[in-house]
């Protein structure tokens, strides 16, 4: 069963590569929805197997708030714009750098979690890989929608991190999920007016 979860979590990392490779915004938004859906379903499945109603409820919340609500908000926010909005980017070099991000995640996992903290949770590798992929997405793109997706990927990684180290009390996890949803709603207002992140003379120095 553990092998099954690791294969599923591998899909999350591959999906993050898919998002990184997207030049168009819409597929990246849906890619994020799929990622959240896989994570939510995995948590719910673990909850069912361990007879933990907290994990089951958390999985359902992730599916509802992350996979559907956030995808819906981002999709609606993007709806008024060109359906085929494309961000000019060199996908090949992005992909190579993303591979290096993954290697960096493996090094962090080995040195900090295995050697230093002596944690016995190999699934954490996927959480760290997703976290760095999210950070890289924020740093490497100028489009605000893609940067938002990077941020939500980071938050998804936090959920995985919590699940495989120690399950945080549901009250706090649920509040975090609602907090992020509220933040995405605020972001959608700003993003509607502002498509691209640009350098501005007044903000130098």
């Amino acid at each position: 069963m553990i092998v099954y979860f690791e294969i599923v979590l591998m899909l999350v990392v591959i999906n993050a590569f898919y998002i990184q490779g997207q030049a168009y915004i819409k597929p990246a938004i849906y890619g994020l929805g799929v990622e959240s859906l896989i994570i939510g379903a995995t948590i719910a499945a673990i909850g069912l197997l361990q007879f933990s109603w907290e994990l089951l409820l958390l999985g359902i919340l992730v599916i509802t708030l992350r996979a559907f609500a956030i995808t819906y908000v981002l999709d609606r926010s993007f709806a008024g714009k060109s359906r085929l909005k494309k961000e000019p980017t060199n996908i090949t070099s992005m992909f190579v750098i993303d591979m290096f991000t993954l290697i960096f995640a493996i090094i962090i996992f080995q040195f900090f979690l295995i050697d230093y903290l002596k944690l016995n949770a190999p699934q954490l590798l996927f959480a760290i890989a997703l976290f760095f992929q999210g950070l890289f997405l924020i740093a490497s793109r100028k489009n605000t929608y893609i940067q938002v997706i990077g941020y939500v990927e980071e938050e998804n990684a936090m959920i995985l991190f919590g699940i495989f180290i120690i399950t945080i009390p549901l009250l706090i996890e649920a509040s975090v999920l609602l907090d992020v949803l509220a933040l995405i709603l605020v972001i959608s207002i700003v993003v509607r007016e502002k498509d691209e992140h640009l350098a501005i003379e007044e903000l130098k120095g």
Binding site: L135, I138, T144, Q147, V148, G150, Y151, E154, L183, V186, I187, V190, V191, E193, K194, H197, L198, I200, E202, L203
Partner: peptide
């Protein structure tokens, strides 16, 4: 437009 850029930077940098 500067305020929009600043709001965006604030949200994404602080949240991340």
């Amino acid at each position: 437009q500067v305020a929009l850029e600043v709001a965006w930077r604030y949200i994404i940098l602080v949240s991340a």
